Simulated assay, not measured.
Amino acid sequence: MAAENGDDLTVAVAQKNASEVTEEAGSYPKDLSYGVYDCDPSSVDPNGTIISGIEQKPRIVLMGLRRSGKSSIQKVVFHKMSPNETLFLESTNKVVKEDISNSSFVQFHIWDFPGQIDFFDPTFDSENIFGGCGALIFVIDAQDDYMEALERLRHTVTRAYKINPRINFEVFIHKVDGLSEDYKMDTQRDIHARATDDLYDAGFEQVHLSFHLTSIYDHSIFEAFSKVVQKLIPQLPTLENLLNIFISNSAIEKAFLFDVVSKIYIATDSSPVDMQSYELCCDMIDVVIDVSCIYGLMSGDELAPAFDRHSQASIRLNNGTVLHLREVNRFLALVCILRDDAMEKQGMIDYNFTMFRAGIQKVFEVRKSQNRKMAAISFTNENGETVHC
C-alpha cells in the first residue's frame, strides 16, 4: 500500500482480545461540556457563570460574501462531501442552522448565513445571533477582489463585539489551493494588515482576529476548524498537559487527540503542528476504519461501528517513522508519531496510554461534578419566586 507522498506503508491492524481490555468504550459522556455560549442569557450571571445548571452546545456562525465557500466548507468537513461535488451546490439564500452531533464527540450548532444579508435590516436580530455565539468565522475568497469582503468583515466584527465581547473571531482566507506559496503569504499579510488597520481606525484595537489559509482540497480546512473548536473547549490546557506528559515519557515525537468522525483534533501537545504530519494522521484514521469495515466486523454485525474499543493500529513508513493509533473511546482516538526504535518499548507505551486514558476520564468526571454543583444553586426569578435548579 502506498501513501500519498510515496511512502510504502506496512499496515498492521491489531485487535486486542476482549479479556485483555480493561477499558470500556463509551465510558465518557458524549457531550464535550463546552463553556457557556449557547444558553439563555437569564441563566448566566454577570461573571458568565451558569446559574440554572443548563449547559448547552456552543454556536459557531459562518459569514462572508456570496460564493466565498461557506456552504462548501460545512459540507466537506461535517458531511464528508467530496470537494468536487461542492461545485454543484446552490448559493445559500437563507440562514441554515445545523446541529453537529451525529455520532461525534465534537458537538455544536453551526449557523450558515447567506452572503447577501443586510445588517441594517430591522428584521436582523443581532442580539439573538451574536449574543449566544462562541465563534464567528468570516470567509474571504482569496481568488477574488477582497476589498468589499474586508469592509463587510469590519462591520460584522464591530457590531458583534459590541453585543458579545467573548466571541472568538476567525478569518478563513479561503480557496488558496490555486495560489503559489509566495502569493498565499502576500495575500495573508495584506488581508491581516488591512483588517487590523480598519478595526484600529474604528476604535476596536482590542479586538483580536485569527487568520487561517484554507482550502477544501487539502487538510488545511480541517486544521483551521480544529483550532476554532479548541478555543471553545475549557479543558484544553489540561488535555494538552496530559499529552505533553504522555509523549515525554513514551519517546513519542507528536500526538493528536482526534474526533474520529470529523477528523478534527481537539488537542495536541505543545510542539508545533506540521501540516504533513497532520495529514498522515488523518489518512491513518481513514485506513483503520476502511480496513476495519472489511476485516474487523463479525458476520451479522453490519450495523456495528467500524471504530470501537478493540481498535488499535500501527503503520510503518519506509523512512523509519511509525504512526500508532489507540482508541480512547468510541468517539476519540489518540494518534502518535514516533521513531521505529521507540516501538521496541511497546509495554511502556501501553502502560502510559492506560494512565493517559484514565487522566482524561478524570478530567470529564471533574467537569461533570462541577455541573452538578452548579445545578444545586437556587435563584429568584422576575416574579420574586425562589427557583431551585
Rank of each mutant, 00 (worst) to 15 (best):
N84C: 11
L323N: 07
G132T: 13
E279R: 00
D259V: 01
V260G: 02
S299G: 06
E279G: 07
Y146T: 05
F172T: 07
L332D: 01
V76G: 11
K30I: 04
F307D: 01
I294L: 09
F130C: 05
A18Q: 11
Y34V: 00
Y351T: 08
I266F: 02
P165N: 10
F364W: 09
A3L: 14
A135M: 03
E90C: 09
V322G: 02
S103N: 13
V229K: 05
I289P: 02
G53K: 09
H109T: 09
L239P: 03
E85W: 04
V171Q: 01
K231Y: 01
E181N: 11
D7H: 15
K75V: 07
D283C: 06
T22A: 12
I163K: 11
M284N: 06
R189E: 12
M298W: 00
S215V: 05
A12Q: 12
S250G: 02
I117H: 14
H212E: 02
A14C: 10
L150F: 03
A12V: 13
G131T: 03
H324G: 02
G320I: 12
V11Q: 08
S226N: 04
K227R: 12
L209H: 04
M275Q: 11
Y217G: 09
S248P: 01
R166G: 07
M374L: 14
F88R: 14
L87V: 08
Q107L: 08
Y217M: 13
I129E: 12
S71G: 09
E170D: 15
Q15F: 12
R159A: 07
A25L: 08
Q230S: 04
F379D: 06
H310W: 03
A142I: 05
K57R: 15
M374Y: 10
N371P: 00
A2I: 15
T380R: 12
T214R: 04
